[in-house]
Amino acid sequence: MLWPATLLGAAAGLALASIPGALLGGLLGQMLDRRMRLRSLEHLRQLLGLQRPQMDDEDLLFMLLGRLAKSDGRVLDSHIQMAAGEMQRLGLDELSRRRAMQAFARGKQADKELRGPLRALQARPERAEVVLRTCWRMAWADGRLSEAERLLIEQWARWLGFPRAALQAMAEEYRPQASVPDTPGGDYQAALRLLGVRADSEPRLIKQTYRRLLSRHHPDKLAGAGASAAQLRAATDKTRELHAAYELIRRRHGFR
């Protein structure tokens, strides 16, 4: 392991007071390395705010989802629930969920910083496809596809080097065949039946049931198994129905 503070302390001490200074500087630096658990010079720069942490796949994905959610000016509950469902599907632990939420919030204002990471995904076309599929689901999370959302996804597809024809075919897969009723005017009893909960169920149980169903019917599980476009569309419609039902029940019960 590289001890950055140790090396920097020794170098500074050597410059100031020759060998004794190097020994003292190295000792103090080693104490700092151990206390802060520094791993590299890049890690030290990150802690000092001189360098952004390297963006991994999950950071990039949730930044994109955050940018889509904010593209029409306001993040809706359906956007937040979709992001939460994605965290559930990915099996993120508490620390990873917090990081994903931070990336989602950071992505609301992101634009230029997404270009480089997306272009880097050109070498991983399978991952690029997963990213775009998740973006289409976020775009349809509120039941409609806005012009701003469409333009963003098309721009990201260009940066990914994703063929336009393939993107259009993917867009059709996620377009709902029939409109799902808006949450406020939906049928409360039908929503309870869809989730398999009762009107007197505890909020914790409702949330757990919703997330379990969302994970079970997630389109990504079919996408990796060579499902047809019709099957993917049906799975997408099912997750949208679950979103709408959960939102209706959540509002009726008054929990978040």
Rank of each mutant, 00 (worst) to 15 (best):
S18D: 14
A15C: 08
D182H: 15
T134P: 01
D33R: 13
S215K: 15
R119H: 05
K238W: 07
E154R: 13
A230M: 06
A245C: 03
D182I: 13
M87I: 02
E202G: 07
R35M: 10
P176F: 06
Q54F: 03
L28I: 15
P20W: 04
L248A: 03
L194T: 09
L61D: 01
E147Q: 14
A15W: 11
G161S: 14
L114Q: 04
L214S: 13
A139H: 07
F255C: 05
R175C: 12
S71Q: 12
W156K: 03
A15S: 09
G85Y: 02
K112R: 14
E42N: 06
R127F: 07
A199G: 12
A227I: 04
M170K: 10
R39P: 01
A157L: 08
A12E: 03
C135G: 03
P20K: 01
E129Q: 13
W159L: 12
A15G: 12
R99F: 01
R252V: 04
A22R: 00
E173T: 15
R233H: 14
L2T: 14
R74K: 14
A12P: 01
Q30V: 10
R98H: 08
Q168R: 14
R137N: 09
R204C: 03
D200F: 12
P184H: 04
L47N: 06
A103S: 11
D142I: 08
Q177H: 15
R211S: 06
A10F: 02
R115L: 11
G9D: 04
Q88R: 06
P203K: 08
K207D: 03
R89H: 12
R204D: 10
A120V: 00
Y188R: 11
D93K: 01
G143H: 07
L38R: 00
G143R: 05
R233M: 11
L41P: 00
A223F: 04
A69K: 01
G254F: 11
R193P: 06
R137W: 04
S40R: 00
Q122K: 10
M36D: 13
G13Q: 05
W3T: 12
A110W: 11
L145I: 02
L16M: 14
R240E: 08
L47K: 15
G9R: 03
L61W: 00
M1G: 13
T209P: 01
E241N: 03
A83E: 03
M36K: 14
T183L: 06
M31A: 15
D77R: 13
A123N: 01
R74Q: 14
L95N: 07
L213P: 01
R52I: 02
K221M: 05
E113Y: 04
L194N: 07
G25Q: 07
G224P: 00
Q122A: 06
G143P: 08
E126K: 07
L90T: 00
F255V: 05
R115A: 09
Y188I: 09
L195F: 10
A225Q: 10
A166K: 13
L64H: 05
E42G: 02
E173W: 13
A141T: 10
A123E: 05
L48M: 12
K238C: 09
G161Q: 14
G85V: 03
L242F: 02
P4N: 02
G29A: 05
L14P: 00
